[in-house]
Simulated scan of single mutants.
Amino acid sequence: MKTITKPDELAAFCAAAAEHPYVTVDTEFLRERTYYSKLCLIQLAHPGGGEDSAVLVDPLVEGMDLEPLYTLFRDTSVVKVFHAARQDLEIFWVAAGLFPTPLFDTQVAAMVCGFGEQVGYETLVRKICRQPLDKTSRFTDWSRRPLSDAQKTYALADVTHLRQIYEFLQAELVRSKRTVWVEEELQILTNPETYEVDPATAWQRIKTRTNSPRFLGIVRELAAFREGYAQSNDVPRSRVYKDDALIELASTKPRTMQDLGRSRLLLREARKGAIADGILAAVERGVSMDQGDLPVPDRSREKLQVNPALADLLRVLLKAKSEDSNVAPRLIAPAAELDAIAAGQRDVPSLRGWRRDVFGADALRLCQGEIALAARGEAVDIVELSR
């Protein structure tokens, strides 16, 4: 198996790959000790055949330039095939500010083609390629050199089998006329907002039991400081302080270093230096913030007047539609959307695009009393109601 360690070797492979309709791509990375993923290995394969059609690229070699790969990513005549692409795409977006175009994600396609929710690569290799897959090297340290033969074999398998998986799923999508369904899903993956975390909005991901505007104001300031510090120092946000410590700080409102020393949940490293100073400054901003500048609690869920009987009927309808279309139910409509529809909300994804065709249109008809559901053995039938 070939490992590319020079830019000219990468350029030669990418030029060869550009002569084919698609290239399969995967990465190995580490993120346990950093905010941003550390790219450790890139795997590439094209359908040309021969030993040189699948390679490993070592981005950690001094002098390695990935621009030939980025040029290939910009080539719209070559489909870039990934499995569960989100983390891979984040790496390339952060490193080069680009998304591989056009993109195909076999995990998304597999859900559309009836392989279940969040289907793993190993499952697709077994079901489509009829091959076993050795995953013993999955959790190895990909930053250490040299790589073992077992690591290289494992890594290369992630793109060699992907060729057959892609061709199978692509043919199935064409047969079922569902290519546009996958394209709609991939718009989320290629939206920069999917990967960019604004420190000012980081607080919205933190679960709190208190909706006091003042408390949320302190939470917002603490979360913004943590996110900004983690990004600028490239450390995991949990290494700054964890969510439970953030909630504790928002409750106790420390104003001095001595107050910080009384925290039960704060890491030792956060009780001194830049982090401690940042915590105290964030608390001070939250405490002294004008009332009009405090965040407004999101009470939208509290205001939902969910009709529980209707929500249950929507779940039955979703199960029936999922089985009829052979698409994972959660891909069509998560449980929260069913409750929202039952509460009268209409601006939800399951009522738009291909989801509306599969489920949303009949969901609305059910809500409006135009149809009913009837059990027929193990099946569920839609019954038209006369008006």
Results as ranks from 00 to 15, higher is better:
2 K>G: 00
5 T>W: 00
21 P>T: 12
24 T>P: 00
32 E>C: 09
39 L>E: 09
41 L>N: 03
42 I>D: 03
55 V>L: 09
57 V>E: 05
63 G>E: 08
67 E>S: 15
70 Y>W: 13
70 Y>Q: 01
74 R>I: 02
76 T>A: 14
81 V>F: 12
88 D>N: 09
88 D>V: 12
90 E>I: 09
95 A>I: 03
96 A>L: 03
98 L>F: 02
99 F>A: 10
100 P>C: 12
110 A>Y: 11
114 G>A: 10
115 F>D: 01
124 L>G: 01
134 D>L: 05
138 R>L: 09
139 F>Q: 14
140 T>N: 07
154 Y>E: 04
157 A>L: 07
166 Y>G: 07
166 Y>M: 10
172 E>H: 11
175 R>K: 14
178 R>W: 12
179 T>K: 11
180 V>G: 05
180 V>D: 14
181 W>F: 15
186 L>A: 08
189 L>Y: 08
194 T>N: 12
195 Y>T: 00
198 D>H: 14
213 P>W: 12
215 F>S: 10
218 I>H: 03
219 V>M: 07
221 E>Q: 14
224 A>G: 07
225 F>A: 05
228 G>W: 06
241 Y>E: 07
242 K>P: 00
245 A>D: 07
246 L>A: 05
247 I>K: 11
256 T>D: 01
260 L>E: 03
262 R>V: 00
264 R>T: 08
266 L>V: 01
275 I>M: 06
276 A>N: 07
277 D>F: 00
282 A>I: 04
298 D>A: 07
303 K>D: 14
306 V>R: 00
308 P>W: 03
308 P>H: 01
311 A>R: 10
314 L>F: 06
316 V>A: 11
330 R>E: 15
332 I>K: 03
332 I>A: 05
343 A>I: 02
348 V>A: 02
349 P>C: 01
350 S>C: 15
365 R>W: 01
366 L>W: 11
375 A>V: 14
375 A>N: 08
377 G>M: 06
